[in-house]
Design a protein around this nucleic acid. Sequence first.
DNA 1: TACATAATTGAAAGCGCTTTGGAAGTCTGG
DNA 2: CCAGACTTCCAAAGCGCTTTCAATTATGTA
Lengths: 343, 343
Amino acid sequence: MNLKQLSQMLGLSQTTVSRALNGYPEVNHETRERVLKAVRETGYRPNKAAQRLATGKAGSIGLVMPTSPGNSSDVHFSEFLTGLGEEALRHDFHFVLTPADPNDEVGALRRLAASGNVDALFVNYMRGHDPRLDMLKTLSMPFLVHGRSIGSEPDYPFLDIDNEAAFYDATKLLLQLGHRRFALLNGPIYLDFAIRRKKGVDAALAERGLALDEACVSHTAMTDEQGLFTMERILQMERERRPTAVLCSSTVLALGAVRAINQAKLRLGEDISMIAHDDVLTLLKPENFTVPLTTTRSSLRAAGVRIAERLIGEIKHTDTFPAQELWKAELIVRASTGVAPAD
Amino acid sequence: MNLKQLSQMLGLSQTTVSRALNGYPEVNHETRERVLKAVRETGYRPNKAAQRLATGKAGSIGLVMPTSPGNSSDVHFSEFLTGLGEEALRHDFHFVLTPADPNDEVGALRRLAASGNVDALFVNYMRGHDPRLDMLKTLSMPFLVHGRSIGSEPDYPFLDIDNEAAFYDATKLLLQLGHRRFALLNGPIYLDFAIRRKKGVDAALAERGLALDEACVSHTAMTDEQGLFTMERILQMERERRPTAVLCSSTVLALGAVRAINQAKLRLGEDISMIAHDDVLTLLKPENFTVPLTTTRSSLRAAGVRIAERLIGEIKHTDTFPAQELWKAELIVRASTGVAPAD
DNA sequence: TACATAATTGAAAGCGCTTTGGAAGTCTGG
DNA sequence: CCAGACTTCCAAAGCGCTTTCAATTATGTA
């Protein structure tokens, strides 16, 4: 069933039916009712491809899904996706997910844009001086960045959390509790958030004339396995060098790290303190850890909702938003942080 | 840059350029090279909407993403998605993700099909007598089901694992080790896999004249939180009624359950045995648990790859596949299963 | 040389929708 | 009763691509 058939059925022109459907004012009320009724009865649905071709609007947001045989699926990504979806649902938008080889994200993005399948683009997992930014700026298509790219001119629309401040605050709290030796279990070093979080830690330590022992810093994928391995390694250091405070970039990393701590028969919050960043994953709640975890908290899902909201608003030209948003993370103190043990 | 411009630039007709691009044999080798070179230089990309309109093929697979404010994002879903993406990448396919209110999945599916945005549909999280099946059968569009729907005629294409056999085998192993009282931490009761897994347990027990104590059976979302809560509750039962063996529908549930067991100062594999179903989540490896977990294993990601492969094959009419596949899960014994403790 | 055959290329007709530019028909007020 | 202003509707021109049908040239054969 297409427009032509429908309009013939009704004895109207395609023009009128189309207008009735799209809410144009110049169609008789009675005629519109008749059209709407027919639509209901026949189950007619406009062909999106044709609509897209005619209007240039697709009603969809494109995103590149980093994927490769070796690449792991990522809880953080799916949590975020859920937020995007939640908002998109309200506006009858959908997503076009293009899987891409991580080595060719720029190409994948360009192809996605040129395909005419999407109205706007979205990127995340930003890196330092991210090459995708330059490409996006050349495109005349709305886009939004989740995160930022250190080393690039900040002249693009983004939504980010203040990673540096979050880890600065967390470190400061631990310093106040008397800790002097720190470990940092961070995400991959090339990612912007990891860079900023380390900067936050460094800054807080520098204020006290301290510095991170590089042997206590790791940059790994954010899985519990890596958390376990890294923490095991760190705990094997001789006593006087071993850190008494640990900062984790994710509760997932923390999950493994806590297990390592338990296996070493150390008491979390007493022998060793920990603060993790909490993306508010539904899977993993820091308050449900055996020793509830002190965290810096910012919901990935909420970020997803907000990003969809902004992107859709821009496509529809309904709203204007601040181009750049920086969210503060909350520092929530639970039982995993305690005063530093006496040496 | 569109076809028309490109062909004018080359002094060729749109026809020839189109044919050169799509690999038709009747175009001069030299001409084709010229076209390809121009494409590379200009970065021309065919407009997908136009292609879609002309051919009726969209090069995309539709899937409905269950989403609502209360609904949790799901690691299992994202693991699976990664597999889909991995295969889709090889064929230059993409996914159209339509978020949908869980109460209107049938409607969302129908709209997605009618939109003309997708060539094939995919559904998962099957329920008993799933209403989506009837709808899919009326559509003249290829579809594939991940899982099955107990209570419906099995006359639809699916890929499933043999959940009943997996849990039958697992239960049998525990019986052989002398266990007599069992707990089952299962997924939501309305889901097909949960129903079948319970059937497997029931069947194995019935052979020995045993049955599940309903107080030891839970049907919850598969999060570590629920695992923790449920296990805590179960461990509070009086000693002679308390189960000595636990079956978990997911390693995520097991994660919480193990924590409850640790907190109760019970030794996994000695005081209490556990077998979990392992979807091979990159996040969570059963071999990395403090006490490595005995599991029934079947990779969700591999299922994703296979499903994409079948769906794409069907769309392109390149391959024929068996309509229905039932994969066996492997039973992998690790340290979490031991002989039943003497009463 | 003449004619059949193969190898290349093009013109034009859609695919299903939106939208521009009228064209009727219907109301007003003078 | 008619000019001017609405209202309501339609014909037709695209959007950018594929594909059918046909034309043109090159190659081979008798």
